[in-house]
């Protein structure tokens, strides 16, 4: 499996990463190497094996429907990059 610089750009777009132009080819080579290493997985016989998402065989606990979180807007927004009138500011969202 070889990753081309174009594919790197696509993946970087999906992940919303701005890559320096001189890094693209390097990343392409490095990710290709990693994928080669990871490619060993295809040799494993995993027929009828259930995927394992969690180490422990536990199930989800449920939380009671009780309000526990007070308003902490001031604390949460104290170090926020851009707020106004209690709202988080972002460049215009166009629908």
């Amino acid at each position: 499996m070889t990753l081309t610089p174009d594919q790197i750009q696509q993946v970087a777009h999906l992940a919303r990463l701005d890559l320096a132009p001189d890094r693209v080819a390097i990343y392409a080579q490095q990710l290709t190497n990693i994928l080669d290493m990871v490619g060993q997985l295809s040799g494993a016989s995993t027929e009828a094996v259930l995927p394992m998402a969690h180490p422990l065989d536990m199930h989800q606990r449920l939380r009671p429907d009780v309000v526990t979180e007070p308003n902490q807007r001031e604390a949460f927004q104290a170090h926020a990059p851009a707020v106004q009138d209690g709202l988080y500011r972002v460049p215009k969202v166009i629908e």
Binding site: D65, T68, E69, F76, G86
Partner: peptide, 20 residues
């Protein structure tokens, strides 16, 4: 009364981000 994954209030019409 509260959110699906946390104990924050879900009442409609509160001041912005006071229930975040």
């Amino acid at each position: 009364k509260t959110k699906i994954f946390s104990g924050a209030n879900t009442a409609y019409g509160a001041e912005p981000n006071t229930q975040a």
